[in-house]
Amino acid sequence: MLENLKALQSTLQLEKLEKYKRRVSFGDLITDRWENARQYGFGNGSSCYDNVLILGEVQVGEHTWIGPNVILDGLGGLSIGNHCSISSGVQIYSHDTVRRSVTLGRAPVDYTPTKIGNGVYIGPNCIIGRGVSIGDSAVIGAMSFVNCDVPAGKKVWGCPARIAGDVEI
């Protein structure tokens, strides 16, 4: 049985490599990104790689792309709008255990809803902290740590992220 799985994986990897010039995890070879998104109840036309970690209640609008190796923490509530791009390695949180840890368990876990508007681009390897709201048509530069709200139509980057200007459409 294991040898059959290995042969299937090898064949599917070669097909994917020839057709799309990429290698993906075994789960992404045998599942459809759009079907994954449908099974989570995400909006029409959205896609989600098999290796995305999804916790709690996550709402995603239509035609949103969620890249590989993403963490979507909806334990405190997470909503993502329509036509967003959530790049590879992005982590979006709606809870943290900071106060619980530093009080040696006396304080509770903190939960605050996180909201990503419509038409938002989040670059690779960004971290969006608990309770942050990102307005429509915002751009978050790669490897940024966003720990405060981002107004609509702004581009931000850095650690912590700072407003760098207006998005030009």
Rank of each mutant, 00 (worst) to 15 (best):
I134D: 09
P151C: 04
P68F: 03
E62P: 02
A37S: 03
G141W: 11
T114P: 11
V90H: 09
A107G: 00
V150N: 12
A152E: 13
V102E: 02
L17F: 14
P160A: 09
P113A: 08
L53R: 14
A152V: 07
V24D: 02
S87C: 15
Q13T: 14
Q9L: 04
I127W: 02
A161R: 08
G165Y: 15
L5V: 10
G41F: 04
W34Y: 15
V70W: 06
P160E: 07
R106V: 11
S85K: 12
E3A: 05
R162H: 06
A161Q: 09
H83E: 12
G131T: 02
K6Q: 13
K19E: 14
F42S: 01
R162W: 00
T112N: 08
K19A: 13
S101I: 02
P113L: 08
E168V: 14
V58H: 11
I116E: 03
L104N: 10
T31P: 06
W157N: 00
Q13C: 09
I30C: 01
G105V: 09
F145S: 09
R99K: 02
I71K: 08
R130Y: 04
N51K: 03
G56R: 07
S10P: 01
I30F: 01
Y121C: 00
G76H: 06
L14G: 00
S133C: 14
K16M: 14
L55I: 10
S46Y: 05
Y93C: 08
C84W: 12
S85A: 12
A164I: 04
I92Y: 09
I134G: 10
A7Y: 05
P108K: 06
T11D: 11
E168H: 12
R100E: 10
V120P: 03
S101M: 02
S144W: 11
I80Q: 03
Y93A: 07
P124S: 11
T64Y: 08
V132S: 06
N125M: 12
K19H: 10
I134P: 12
A152P: 11
L104H: 14
A37L: 05
E168W: 06
H63K: 14
W157K: 03
W34F: 15
T114R: 10
Q39V: 02
R33W: 12
A37I: 03
G67E: 05
L78S: 05
S85N: 13
I86F: 09
E168P: 01
L104R: 13
S85V: 13
L72F: 13
A138T: 07
L2C: 00
I71L: 15
G81Q: 07
I169K: 15
G105L: 11
I127C: 13
V150L: 12
N69D: 12
L104D: 01
C48T: 03
V24M: 08
G74F: 09
H95L: 09
G43E: 01
Q59P: 01
W65S: 02
G153C: 11
H95G: 00
Q59E: 13
L8C: 01
F145K: 04
L5E: 10
H83K: 15
D166W: 13
D28N: 15
V167Q: 09
D96R: 05
N36I: 07
Q13K: 14
